[in-house]
């Protein structure tokens, strides 16, 4: 018989593991949708989400930037791999986000306790 305290710790670990992947799983549900990725150097890249990985690196297709004159080199590419660490915000399509599901996932630790 596992003491209550240990159970709690084990539960905590399991939930941590799932919550670690929360946004990775979330972004995977948005594959195929158009998003706007705002980088820490203020570049705004619009594109269709092609894929995402566990570091929240993002791959976009059909990319365009809001100010192409300022970023001439963006004219060369139509697909882009964006390193997760340089992302400030991602503007999401509001109709493709199930906010109830997100909230449930974020609260999960409470319900398990």
């Amino acid at each position: 018989m596992v003491p209550t305290y240990c159970k709690f710790v084990i539960f905590n670990k399991i939930v941590r593991l799932t919550s670690k992947m929360l946004f990775y799983s979330f972004f995977k549900t948005l594959v195929g949708h158009e998003i706007i990725v705002e980088l820490k150097n203020d570049i705004c890249v619009t594109g269709r989400l092609h894929s995402v990985d566990q570091f929240l690196n993002i791959k976009l297709i059909e990319v365009c930037v809001s100010d192409p004159e300022k970023y001439p080199y963006m004219n060369y590419i139509s697909e882009s791999f964006i390193r997760g660490s340089v992302v400030r915000y991602v503007q999401l399509p509001v109709n493709s986000v199930d906010s109830q599901l997100l909230q449930d996932a974020a609260r999960k630790e409470i319900t398990i306790r």
């Binding site: 941590r16 919550s19 670690k20 929360l22 946004f23 979330f26 929240l56 999401l92 509001v94 986000v97 906010s99 997100l102 909230q103 996932a105 974020a106």
Partner: peptide, 15 residues
């Protein structure tokens, strides 16, 4: 904004 989700890095989704 309205907090929909967060994780241990304080990544968040706000409505």
């Amino acid at each position: 904004g309205r907090l929909h989700a967060f994780d241990q890095h304080l990544n968040m989704v706000l409505g």
